[in-house]
Amino acid sequence: MAGTWGRISTAVSPFPNPHYCVVYMRTGISMAEIPKEEYVLKCTSGCAGCSSTLCLRYILKAAGPETVLVMPACCTSVIQGAYPNTAMNVPVYNIAFASAAACASGISASYRSLGKKTNIIVYAGDGGTVDIGLQALSGAFERGTDFLYICYDNEAYGNTGMQRSGSTPLGALTTTTPAGKIHAKKDIDSIVAAHSPPYMASACSAYPLDLFKKVRKALEVRGPTFIHVLAPCPPGWRFPSDQTIEVGKLAVKTGMWILWEREYGKLKISAPSRAAVKKPEPLATYFSAQGRFKGIDPAVAEQLRNEVRRNIQRFVREEEQSCDQ
C-alpha cells in the first residue's frame, strides 16, 4: 500500500455510504469490496495492537461464514476467548499442537464426502507450523487435502512468553536467546514448495487487502494451499503497540519479508514488494524499530543483510524464469 492514495468523490462512487471513503490500493482491491461482516467479534483477549487479530479479521472476511477454523495451541487459542464465550463467529476446532493439519484432513474429507464445499482453514502459529506441526503439515500436503493452511508468523512462541522458534530470525532476542539467536530462520516456504501445492503465497498484516485477496484466491483452488503471514507482535518484538503496521511495512520495504504468490509453480512478486526488491530500504531502519534487535552484533547484521540480498535475487530470478516458461 505504499502506492498512491486517491479519494473517489461520492458522485462517482458506487458505494452507498458517503462517509466510507474508497481508496484503491496497488493491490487492485478497494476497501468497499471487503465484506462489512466481522467474524472476530469485538474485544478479543489478544494484546493491544496484536497483528494476528488483524490478520484473522481479514482472513475470515475473505472466507465468509461457511468456514471451519482448525487451531493448534497458539496465541489465537487465547484470543478466541474462554468458555462459555468466544470472539469467533465461525466454528473453531481446537486441537493438539502437532495435529492441526491431520485434523483438518479428516474434517475436509468428511465435508467433501457430504458434498459440502465448506472452507477448512488451519490457522497456526510459527511454532505450530515450522517446528511442532511440520510432519502433519507435510502429510496433509502429500495427501492433497482440500484445505488452506495459514501460518501467522510472529517469529517465536508467543503464547508461552516468546521463546525462540525455528522461525525466529538470526540475531533476534527472545527469552531463550538472550544474546540473540545464533541460527538462521528456517525456510518453511521452500519445504512447503517441495510438495508442489497448486497455490502458495506470503503476506503481511500491514497489507490486509493483499492478504484478503490471497485468501480468496487460495480458497478458490482445490487441493492444499498455503499462506505464510508475517505478524509483528508488539510485546514479543519489543515495540510500542501503535507501531504494529509500521513495523510490518518496514519488513516489506527493507526486503526482510517479500510478498509473493506462486500459482501452479509460477512465481509473482506482489505489488507492495515491487519497489522493495528493486531498491530495498536499509535494514537498519527495521532493526532500530524493534527492541529485539537491540545491540545486534555488526557481523550478524551483515550476515542478515547478505541473506536479504540473496533472498531478493532468488525471488527476482525465479520470477524471470517463471515468465520465460
Binding site: Y20, L54, R57, P208, T244
Partner: peptide, 24 residues
C-alpha cells in the same frame, strides 16, 4: 481498516467499550 479489534465502525465511530487504546 487497520484497527485489529474492529472497534471503528463503518461510520468511523470508535467503540470505546471495546477499543484497547493501541494507537494504531
Amino acid at each position: 481498516l487497520y484497527c485489529p479489534e474492529a472497534a471503528i465502525d463503518e461510520d468511523l465511530r470508535v467503540d470505546v467499550d471495546f477499543c484497547k487504546g493501541c494507537g494504531i
